[in-house]
């Protein structure tokens, strides 16, 4: 299918409701909170573990976390549906303009939010300005005793202390698939790129794909009446849609 991507230059060109390129849909009715996505993300992206004390102090490095809240008291107690929170890859990302050194920038080609590890100087402004609180900071050189380094994914930079990081929509997989598609002279097929979280999800609650392709599974799900963007009122134009209700 032939697609023409108009890359808007700035806010005025990109109206609310318009679709970006890559997008994700998470069905909260299906998510069982099993944490497979969390573990898969950590394994794919060389995320460090931080140990008990730092984890308890709010320094975990999860790029994706599953939120849930309690409503009411026993016996009328209800748990809100599990909600995996990851970088929403905002169209108008609040994290981007505030970085003084352009470490947080928008990819015009992929329409996602990039974090340039090598450029980051660690002001942590982006993390403050992220309404979703999905950016994590390397507060230390987290220990990774040998031979654990054998597991590190060579497609993903291993970050060190003083650097902000966040979900990348597994851009290494996107790039790989694009290279393959290009070498075979075709467009990327729907479902060809699967980020680690969606790949692992046993309930198949996470769907990933091209939003600019109206035929794709993710586009159709994103247009479902159950769809809701997180903190939509802020006008950040998230690329992740949550499906609420049953």
């Amino acid at each position: 299918m032939e697609k023409t991507l108009t890359i808007p230059e700035y806010k005025a060109d990109w109206a609310e409701g318009e679709n970006g390129k890559w997008g994700m849909v998470i069905d909260m009715d299906l998510c069982t909170g099993c944490q497979a996505c969390v573990a898969a993300c950590a394994m794919e992206n060389n995320i460090s573990f931080v140990g008990e004390e730092d984890a308890g102090y709010g320094r975990t490095m999860h790029w994706i976390r599953i939120e849930r809240f309690w409503e009411g008291t026993y016996p009328e107690i209800r748990m809100t549906p599990y909600q995996p929170i990851l970088c929403q890859q905002c169209g108008h990302a609040p994290c981007e303009p505030v970085c003084p050194v352009f470490a947080s920038v928008h990819s015009q080609a992929e329409q996602i939010n990039l974090q340039v590890y090598n450029r980051c100087v660690g002001t942590r402004y982006c993390a403050n300005n992220c309404p979703y609180q999905v950016r994590v900071f390397n507060w230390r050189d987290w220990p990774r005793p040998a031979p654990l380094e054998n597991q590190l994914n060579p497609s993903v930079t291993v970050r060190r202390r003083g650097i902000m990081e966040k979900c990348t929509f597994c851009i290494q997989r996107i790039r790989q698939a694009e290279d393959v598609a290009k070498s075979e002279g075709r467009e990327i097929r729907d479902g060809e790129v699967v980020p680690a979280c969606a790949q692992a999800c046993p309930a198949d609650a996470i769907v990933f794909g091209r939003l600019d392709d109206p035929e794709s599974r993710v586009s159709q799900l994103a247009n479902s009446p159950r769809g809701k963007k997180l903190l939509e009122e802020l006008g950040t134009l998230p690329q992740v849609t949550y499906l609420l209700g049953g």
């Binding site: 709010g58 320094r59 942590r124 993390a127 403050n128 900071f137 507060w139 230390r140 202390r161």
Partner: peptide, 15 residues
Amino acid sequence: MEGLGLAGVNRPAFW
């Protein structure tokens, strides 16, 4: 040498 872990900053108090 150690990183900002020695300080009290965390998520969400990045500053």
